[in-house]
């Protein structure tokens, strides 16, 4: 998988400056898979870039223990498109179509950890869209949140504001 990703990198002409002259950066996922990326990609990830800057570029292997080898390729794909200025509505729609709810959440946390503002904004909107029109119960399950209202409070809310608990769309369970 790692080789496959790095070969994709090479086939892309990303930057006008000669990319072969600068050393590639190795990102190591939480499950110890190495992804080689161009330094321009690393620049998109503020957390990675500040790590490189702090060590004056001497260290080019960066461990990302919070991000799995499943999620990292998506993040890299988004960053590539972002550098190429090719983030269109169509690309975003295609990109998000591939992801189930759990993956969206994981990528969102990855984007937050790596501090990639564009991806974070985009995924915030995706999550916001996925919880719109849904019931309270659905949102609780989606985010793994424990209901901490007292039974009395909950009953009162349900009675007064029934609409907010039923939601408009049926709760789709199978997506996870």
């Amino acid at each position: 998988m790692a080789e496959e990703v790095s070969s994709q990198m090479n086939s892309l002409s990303i930057s006008e400056t000669n990319p072969s002259s600068s050393a590639t950066i190795s990102l190591v996922s939480g499950d110890d898979i190495v992804f080689k990326v161009e330094p321009t990609i690393a620049k998109e990830m503020e957390t990675v870039q500040s790590f490189i800057d702090e060590t004056d570029g001497k260290i080019t292997t960066i461990p990302l223990p919070n991000i799995s080898s499943h999620d990292l390729p998506y993040v890299i794909e988004y960053c590539e498109k972002s550098i190429a200025g090719k983030i269109t509505k169509e690309f975003e729609a295609e990109f998000v179509k591939k992801l189930n709810n759990e993956e969206v959440k994981e990528l969102f946390l990855a984007a937050n950890y790596l501090n990639i503002k564009k991806l974070l904004d985009f995924l915030s909107q995706v999550i916001a869209d996925r919880i719109a029109n849904k019931s309270v119960e659905y949102v609780r399950r989606y985010f793994g949140i424990e209901n901490d209202f007292t039974p009395e409070e909950e009953a009162k809310l349900r009675e007064e504001l029934a609409w907010t608990f039923t939601g408009v769309d049926p709760d789709d369970e199978d997506e996870n």
Binding site: S124, I127, I131, V136, V139, R140, I145, L157, L161, T164
Partner: peptide, 15 residues
Amino acid sequence: HVPLIYLLPASHVSN
């Protein structure tokens, strides 16, 4: 990013 109308259900998720 959540429209105001869906913040109402969201405020009932938890404290």
